[in-house]
């Protein structure tokens, strides 16, 4: 039982840390979308070309902002898990669902980067990797919580 609790804690905090990392990266991409003169974007790959392409917005909303909101939602649900019974019951599954949508959309955006724009944005790739890790770990959490219950 002790080992199980330790693993659960590890999963919880790892997903929380990854969500925070994703939130920072997507938040930064949103920032440079709104303030294109931001300096840290230059010199690393070509995130400016990617982040200013017509694929960087959906219905006028920057995709980076959508990413930031998704990470924030996962993080908030996680933080509420020990405090709110509803979040405790459904938080892991919620994180899994949001992360899955994020993985699929990130896969599409990565395809656009590689095949259409032909420029790679390192921040976007970082975000794609982070959301994929969150999805895998959230999947493990869902499995452990729901499917290994005795």
């Amino acid at each position: 039982m002790e080992a199980r609790a330790t693993t659960d804690r590890w999963l919880y905090w790892t997903v929380a840390a990854l969500s925070l990392l994703g939130l920072i990266v997507a938040g930064y991409l949103t920032y440079i979308k709104w303030f294109p003169a931001a300096p840290f974007c230059t010199g690393v790959g070509d995130c400016e070309a990617v982040n200013t392409s017509i694929y960087s917005e959906v219905a006028g909303i920057p995709v980076a902002l959508l990413g930031a909101l998704a990470y924030a939602a996962i993080l908030i649900a996680l933080l509420l898990e020990p405090r709110l019974p509803l979040a405790g019951e459904w938080g892991a599954l919620f994180g899994f669902g949001v992360a899955l949508a994020g993985v699929l959309y990130s896969a599409y955006l990565t395809y656009i980067e590689i095949a259409v724009i032909r420029k790679i944005c390192p921040y976007c790739v970082t975000s794609a990797v982070v959301i994929t890790l969150i999805w895998v770990l959230a999947g493990v959490r869902v499995y452990r919580k729901w499917l290994t219950e005795s």
Binding site: I54, Y55, E57, V58, A59, G60, V63, L66, L93, F94, F96, G97, V98, L100, A101, G102, L104, Y105, Y108, I112
Partner: peptide
């Protein structure tokens, strides 16, 4: 939940490019 996630991603993809 997985299906819902796929639908959400599909809607986003269908909206792009703006």
């Amino acid at each position: 939940v997985a299906l819902l996630a796929v639908v959400v991603a599909g809607i986003l993809i269908s909206q792009a490019p703006k």
